[in-house]
């Protein structure tokens, strides 16, 4: 397992161009990402690769999937700048075009997971998330994760949060399965419940000390309802970690935030206040320029009840 990241790096470089002295832009990005890598994130990603390999995925497949993910992202960026909005706005459309296509989804999700390792903003968010866990983790507390995705954040929550009980809810069985395998392999925690459900239909009377909703709001039609429900599930002294994005087209992003203020207005309407925040504008730009030119902005928050 120790050399898996090195093999992935070499495979990515091979995928993105010939081994000549002149690097392609994608090769340059890969080299920079590996040079700047967060050590803790690297450990988590090694674990992700280990599980993916056990599931039959090869490292060349992961590199190929990442290239596919970049191509798909560029297609959506082109659509967005041409039309002024995301391609889809309804969950049903995304189910029909994307989520129901198993082969497409497998490559897309694998590519997305690799992007966690390689995109600089993801590293910053991972560090912010870890700080949230270290600050608000409770040895007798309960943790809820909404949207497990590739399982990497959930694994970190268990590793760094030290809660006594975990609930993980996701609409995707494949995501839950992957997360289940990740946690079973690497953490000695038995008190994890995996719930296959739409979060809005997720019925629990109990409340949580910490809730994490990472990169979910842009995938739903009614983010306000998500936030309202999250507040109801949060203990009075609990904290909610939330990340989302502004002007960031992807095939399955259906709710378009055009300004950061639009995100924060939803918090206020839900009765949630901002404890801490992290804004990451597009590289080398300011928030003002990113918003004016509709460049992608990533945002993360630690929220509390008000």
């Amino acid at each position: 397992m120790e050399n898996s990241l090195q093999i992935l790096k070499e495979e990515l470089l091979r995928t993105f161009g010939a081994a000549t002295s002149e690097r392609t832009p994608r090769q340059t990005s890969v080299l920079k990402a590996f040079a700047d890598m967060d050590k803790e994130l690297a450990i988590i990603m090694e674990r992700y690769i280990y599980i993916a390999q056990k599931n039959g995925d090869t490292i060349p497949f992961m590199a190929e999937s990442y290239a596919f993910f970049l191509d798909e992202t560029e297609k959506e960026e082109r659509y967005f700048y041409s039309e002024g909005h995301y391609r889809y706005s309804k969950l049903e459309e995304v189910f029909h075009s994307v989520y129901d296509d198993e082969v497409y989804m497998k490559k897309y999700m694998t590519g997305l997971a690799v992007s966690l390792l390689l995109w600089p903003q993801h590293k910053r968010f991972f560090v912010f998330f870890r700080t949230f866990l270290q600050t608000h983790g409770k040895s007798k507390g309960a943790y809820l994760e909404v949207g497990a995705g590739h399982g990497v954040f959930c694994l970190e929550a268990i590793r760094a949060g030290g809660f006594s009980r975990y609930d993980v809810v996701d609409l995707s069985e494949a995501s839950l399965d992957l997360t289940k395998k990740m946690t079973a392999e690497f953490v000695d925690t038995h008190d994890i419940r995996f719930i296959h459900s739409d979060f809005l239909n997720f019925a629990r009377k109990e409340q949580y000390d910490a809730i994490s909703i990472g990169e979910v709001l842009e995938h739903v039609e009614t983010p306000q309802m998500f936030l309202d429900k999250s507040r109801r599930l949060l203990k009075d002294d609990g904290r909610l970690y939330l990340s989302t994005c502004v002007n960031a087209p992807e095939i399955d992003h259906i709710y378009l935030f055009r300004k950061i203020q639009e995100v924060e207005d939803l918090f206020a309407s839900a009765g949630l206040g901002i404890d801490e925040k992290l804004y990451v504008p597009y590289k080398n730009t300011t928030i003002e320029r990113s918003e004016r030119q509709k460049l992608p902005i990533n945002v993360a928050y630690i929220l509390k009840k008000i």
Binding site: E77, R78, S82, Y282, K283, N284, P296
Partner: peptide, 29 residues
């Protein structure tokens, strides 16, 4: 692209879209 620091893949896409609109043409991906 090497002469302009911010000329990355996203800038290239924004150039493509703006040029298509300005000149009334379409480029293949």
């Amino acid at each position: 692209a090497a002469d302009i620091e911010d000329w990355d893949s996203l800038a290239q896409i924004r150039l493509v879209v703006a040029i298509e609109k300005q000149f009334g043409i379409k480029f293949a991906f």
